[in-house]
Design a protein around this nucleic acid. Structure first.
Lengths: 213, 213
DNA sequence: CGGCTTATTATACGCCCGAATAATTCGCGC
DNA sequence: GCGCGAATTATTCGGGCGTATAATAAGCCG
């Protein structure tokens, strides 16, 4: 009757491990392959433990979804705040979104898996909306600060339209660039993104894309 | 021992029914819920029949993926060729991609489900690439015809850069517009798309978006 | 109209699923 | 250093999965 020896972890630690294992399994085997048993094995525990931390497998999936989305937004925001001018922050934000680690096949696969479940389980729709609006708001803030800095007057409505367009462009380039990573040189994508955004915002060529430090 | 009575259908008909049932199930229950038995029930047959038409469930999923993607591209291309000028064709192509039936939550859910499986099964990657390149080529053709019509000289490289940018923008707007359909009035999205594309291509405001017949 | 091909049904197999419960061992508070 | 609560394991349950195979009936061809 030799039972496995084990380590009693803190709640935060254990939950994090389980979520990480969940994402590993989804990325590797698809959402159909992310079974309780696989996830538990990956996390180095037995299946029963999952129901000790999450009231159901679905709840764990939702927590995992939140984690993925938060990670993506945070990476871009973190890159942005390093910039010293509004122009630089906007530029860095855009580049970060079409550059690793945001452009990562694994992340894309996870993102898509969750998106496809929005229509099936409404709880996932709420998580998506939350993150979409927060991303859009971050972008809108960066944009309006940039226009203030450039002394270019802009109605809030116009700013919002720009934000939606830039958001779409960045999303699309992220998608294409990640799915067809081998078709694009790394710089090609970021450069295209900057050139496209400056065209979208009706800036002078080079105003965003020109080399700077 | 009363067996079910049944109808012997043609191969094409049966395959189509099975693929349609597959898509129904994926959209309704997710890819995990699209089981052989569910699909068969939806198609009004018994499970065993599936392996008579497809050598495995996976092969049927691939056929279903092809069907979804072909439908999306065809809808946009069909809308485009109705236009009489290159400008009108480009305009119609863009609008079609952010308008029903292309912007449809069900279609998006299916698309995402398959995208998320690209990393797991390489056969899906090939299908994606095939369709992405064909969509990009269609767009590139429309664009270069448009620039010829406008008597604006453009290097092939420049045209390709534009195609990639416009493709990304259209993809992104399709995504956002479909996921957050209730946030956008129907016209809002199409109008934003046209305004954004004309900015991307450095056209005069109104050159694409202005009302026309 | 009867025989033959084959599309279709029916059933069985081995495996894995998520969840519930009982049994155990860890490690903190005293 | 020891007891006790709780984190973790082990086991069980009912059910569904994809696939394989045998039995059957539909409907064309002579």
């Amino acid at each position: 009757m030799n039972r496995r020896t084990y380590h009693r972890a803190s709640e935060a630690e254990r939950r994090e491990d389980l979520i990480a294992a969940t994402l590993d399994c989804i990325a590797e085997f698809g959402i159909q392959g992310a079974t309780v048993r696989q996830i538990a094995m990956r996390a180095g525990v037995t299946g029963g433990l999952i129901r000790h931390y999450f009231s159901s497998k679905d709840q764990m999936l939702q927590a995992a979804y939140r984690k993925v989305m938060a990670g993506m937004t945070e990476a871009a925001v973190a890159a942005a705040i390093e910039g010293e001018t509004a122009r630089s922050r906007l530029r860095r934000f855009i580049v970060a979104n079409v550059t690793p680690p945001v452009t990562d096949p694994r992340t894309l696969s996870l993102w898509a898996a969750f998106i496809s479940h929005i229509q099936i389980d409404q709880s996932f729709a709420a998580i998506h909306r939350e993150n979409y609006l927060s991303f859009l708001a971050a972008l809108e803030t960066l944009l309006s600060a940039f226009f203030v800095e450039e002394k270019r007057a802009l109605s809030p409505a116009q700013c919002r339209t720009y934000a939606i367009g830039v958001n779409a462009l960045v999303d699309g380039l992220w998608l294409e660039g990640t799915l067809a990573a081998d078709t694009f040189a790394e710089h090609e994508l970021a450069e295209n993104a900057l050139i496209s955004v400056e065209a979208l915002l009706r800036l002078q060529p080079g105003e965003l894309s020109a080399e700077q430090r």
